[in-house]
Design a protein around this nucleic acid. Sequence first.
DNA 1: TTTACTTTCAAACAATCGTTTGATACAGTG
DNA 2: CACTGTATCAAACGATTGTTTGAAAGTAAA
Lengths: 214, 214
Amino acid sequence: MMTEVEIKTASEQTRMRLLDAAREVFSEHSFQGATVREICRRADANVAAVNYHFGSKDGLLAEALNFAPLAALQNANVSAAACPRLRLRLFLRDFMLMLLDEKNPSSQCRIMARELADPTSALDKIVREAIAPLHAFLGKLVREIVGEKVSESELRRCVHSIVGQCLFYRHSHPVLQRLYPKLRYDRKEIEAIGEHIAEFSLAGIGQLDKTDRV
Amino acid sequence: MMTEVEIKTASEQTRMRLLDAAREVFSEHSFQGATVREICRRADANVAAVNYHFGSKDGLLAEALNFAPLAALQNANVSAAACPRLRLRLFLRDFMLMLLDEKNPSSQCRIMARELADPTSALDKIVREAIAPLHAFLGKLVREIVGEKVSESELRRCVHSIVGQCLFYRHSHPVLQRLYPKLRYDRKEIEAIGEHIAEFSLAGIGQLDKTDRV
DNA sequence: TTTACTTTCAAACAATCGTTTGATACAGTG
DNA sequence: CACTGTATCAAACGATTGTTTGAAAGTAAA
């Protein structure tokens, strides 16, 4: 008793398993550190399967990327009936859950975060389809909060400050784990982090109109 | 006519050249991405030189690390006759120069930043001797600014927010380069970034006493 | 069943990695 | 000079990498 969408040919199932395994491994190791053999092992597939279905390791990474969840977050946010400040809070909460929650099936952000440190051929696509829209989205949101008086370069730096705080917890996870061995990223902790970043950033944004610097 | 400190045996000169080349390559590539052959090529040394002088690639990295410049920055700051807020501004300026200025001979921070994404056996030493002291230093500084009312966990998150903003510009350099092709990290730009982070963070810190949250 | 095509598989390939080896050149001491 | 320990070198080693190959297995239509 299978519904239509569940019916897959063996080939399609193998593709799916490879993509799932690839997202797992690419989010755990850097692109160089992730091996085709490990991916195939987790996907219960032959070593040649990657090249047969995706052409190359690069091709597998390109197809494993999926920016829809991140875009959905932004779309849901812009259509929310709430003031810009609250919308920033809500977005940061969801964004941090996507970044940190290991139970979150969307490992995309973790893969993207890895690409920052060691860019591969996939970085151009990531920047174009995910990061640039994200920065544009946050830029608009911050603009709504801060008004028209603030220069574009100041606005940009505020976006950088916000994104930087978020990515820190992902990038520095190995470090924080050593600094605070008791640290666990459960849902409550992640939400607290998101709330802190929101409050911290709203204050940082708010100080802009006090000065006349460009 | 050489002064005493400049006199080096050929062996010591080779060691020096290897360490310099290693710092270069390790700051440009991840540990996995950096190859012993490339390091030896830049040091005009034989491939076997690394293992002869340092035992292994790991040993070379361990000896190439030098946390003195970062510690010097903190020591100079604590003994400066200035209010905590100004000291935070000054530190962030110097720290960003160390992180971003390619002409800065201290590539240590760039190597450390790479370790965050893909930890190697050197990370424990880095955390113990560099990152933990840095966080402690910033913690004290923020504590001076914010007073005793703020909880330890809130204080810690403020430090994370500050460090996160700083590291963002280093980690995301490849991304920012693609988003803003005109971007250049000259001294003026770096100082402007440091100033922004200081103002943004001081405002973020300042909002803590408005609420009574723990 | 026969035919044509797709997918899987064990095995091998070529390249690159960190590391080791054994010979060679060199320095300093007697 | 001979002797000794150190440093350098070209070459190779063993392991691992992404990728390719050619045969075997599977699939679906005629």
